[in-house]
Design a protein around this nucleic acid. Sequence first.
DNA 1: TAATCCCGCCACTAG
DNA 2: CTAGTGGCGGGATTA
Length: 925
Amino acid sequence: MVKVDAPPLSSPTPRAPASPPRQEGASFGRRAMEVNCLTLQDLISPRQPRLEFVIEDGENAQKENIFVDRSRMAPKTPMKNEPIDLSKQKTYTPERNPITPVKLADRTQAEPWTPTANLKMLISAASPDMRDREKKKELFRPIENKDDAFSDSPQLDAVGDGPVDDLEKQPLSRKQKSLGLLCQKFLARYPSYPLSTEKTTISLDEVATSLGVERRRIYDIVNVLESLHMVSRVAKNQYGWHGRHGLQKTLKNLQRLGEEQKYEEQMAYFHQKELDLVEYKFGERKREGFLDSQDQQLLYFSEPDCTSASANSRKDKSLRIMSQKFVMLFLVSKTKIVTLDVAAKILIEESQDVADHSKFKTKVRRLYDIANVLTSLVLIKKVHVTEERGRKPAFKWIGPVDFSTENGEQLVDVSTSALPELKTEPRSPFQPRVKQRLARHSSFHMIPTSDGIKRKVSSEPNSPRRREQGSDEYCSKIVNLAAACRQKIDKDSQNRGCISKKMLRSSGKLHPVPPFPGHPQDSEYCFHPLSHQVFSVAPADLSPVHLQNGLNGHVALVPTPTASRAESLKPTALPNQPLVYVPSTSLFMLYGSLQEGHPKPEKGRDTPEVAQTSCSSAELSALPFVSSHKRRPQQAQEPAAKRQSTEIEDGPLSLVLPKLTDLTDVASPGSVASVDTMPLEAFQEYPEMPLAQEAARKTTMQYLATPKRKNSLRNADIENSKDLPQPQYLYVQPAPGLNGFNFLLPAHQAANAVGLSPSQLTSLHVPCMVVPSTALAPVPFFYSPAINSPVPSSGPVNFGLPGLRSSNQLLIGSNMVNPKTSKAPSVEPQHPGQSPVNLSPGVSRSRNTITPDSPICMGHPVTIMKLPQSPGPMTPKSIRPPYCETFFKTPGSLGEPVTWRRIEGSQRNLSSAQRRLQIPSGSTD
DNA sequence: TAATCCCGCCACTAG
DNA sequence: CTAGTGGCGGGATTA
């Protein structure tokens, strides 16, 4: 019809043509990689980001490498394709790449890799430079890791030469070219939570070039991101990157709008008539009025800055609006699940009464586009809804929920501030609103930022902005998540079942077998709630600590500002309970030892690394722990970065074994207070990298599974556990890219035995749990929202922050981060700035509560919070600045390189960012 | 076959 | 007019 068909056979478009070539660039190891990827993918869930990631990883890695080569090396040959990488490097600045030759086309051409190129790539990968770049791009890292992994793998190497030659350019599969993957790559280039200071400008051309796609594709991504205010158009071809700072708000607004729109009703309506795709009537009756107003609102909302209304003309941009509406549907949905057809119907109606079937199809197509982007943002994930009819494709919201409530308010209005900051342009329309809203938040006050922008700040003066933001967001997220989780859980008994089952399984089995793999969807589904977020509940006092990870896996820990926030939070999801959100971390092991007594020890074998780490960290004793299977204990010990690379890639694990020597608070197992000691470690990997994550997961799982470890762990745990009622769990988080699964695995095989009974879990309603190690026993952990807090004694529900604060350290790993340290080469911290976020050491003021002060970590890098509590020496990290520390700094920075390394290693080298939160138990005091 | 969704033509606009 | 945007839907891939 309209279209002219593109020439079917040949790739018509000049640019597009690239397709084949691109691959080539990557091609070298690709095959092998692919294979791996596939496997991983398979394991994971198909489709989603994971796959993408996986794929990407391979590609990215290659690309990066290439890219690097290119950039550094010189434009060499074929690599042109690489542009993709370039983008990464450039990431923000468009300028950088002068390169962009022909973009895609070139890229495509570049297909053939030379062996050298491969080598280069590998090298580059190793090289710090790459890391640097990567830093910025959190995602990249993952990629790199993967690369590393790949590289590690013999295959790659082999491939590199030979295969590369193959060039297989195999044309990238469609998946590889998917918008979701592309989006991931895109997102990888920018920090989820850019520092206010850093303003990132996105040049569409650059990005397109670097990513090796047509600009058109970038528009698709940007439009959706724009609808979420993650980016804003600055100028022609230029977009400003805001990251997720304002996401909460945006979502909140969307939720509000959605409510106003009565989307929920509409959805219900459609559901009833599902079958009739074409019925539009409904729309008419319902909405009509709404639409207009709504749309506008949305527009405003979305584009505050939009130049002028005029500009909007076209601008109404269906894609943006559709995106917002689509998001709204999720936000207003009780189930948080929206089927494509219903969404399409609703959108059609709004937009048009008409209803051609064709139109419907078109909408669906668009929705897929949007969904892909949202999936990459880890806001939704695909699921299937079985209805009368049968199975229908649907998407489930896995992003924050309920921010609308108090929480949202509480949240700092990042968006507002953020936007302005980031952008140079002021967006009047939007801002005003925000301010108003903000006004509501008593807890915050606006403060001028360095930028000149005002931000809300938590009441606490101390907290750095970042924190605040983070906290807000986190809080809201947490709350939302908690709420969502509950809802889901409640609603979906199934999910619960799944979750609990899985959890149980995992716990019980501890198998190496990843929980998910088997049932990707299910698992995902089940996990969703948690999905990327994990909450821990803390005492009311504590402000929630959130870890967010954006895509990146940034983790932020935010202490809530105390009461105000807490209060707000409470209402929503978890009353009283502070949460810990662990976002991207691929995996966590939490445990705390209550008393000093931890047995640190044994674990040594494997975990020595960890242990050391933990030790280094301070009091942490070590619990042994985990790591990707790949890691070997030895390795762990070994500083060698390399292994880590491998390992890292595979599975980042983290373990922390803190010892709580100090945990005075902690003491009682059951008691929340005990929690204090909990240290969490997260290892993470790169959220983005699916492979890595999976690997990590697997590894983790395996590790756990492994008898030795188990034993060690168990032993320790058990010991502790004896004391403590609660078992330790291993929480594994998937990378952001991933769907954000979170797992909780019991450290011991028998979770039940441990104390955790499935039932308990169920009772908790929390999809995810973080578990305190046995050691933690005293330490409470998180539970999810616990709503009911079935948790028995202790901690039910929460592990109060206080506890945490008290003695424990909390280590949270974020995906992203990573320490540059040891392996640095492979990993690097992306956003330094971000990472730093942290908690203030002193934060924990009182043991009891974690005050808002409590450190918050944001940013990719892992941060560790330490609480002074225990006598133990703090790790360098802890030492560091109050706020954040990046864990991963180089070892040297840390002070103990070795330790770190190990940690890293344990985590994976790569693992990206990890954040730790240590809360000194008493120390604060 | 159905579900996805890539690809890129082409209309509309801004500059 | 040209370049930037982005709607749109054919049809290729996947599942």
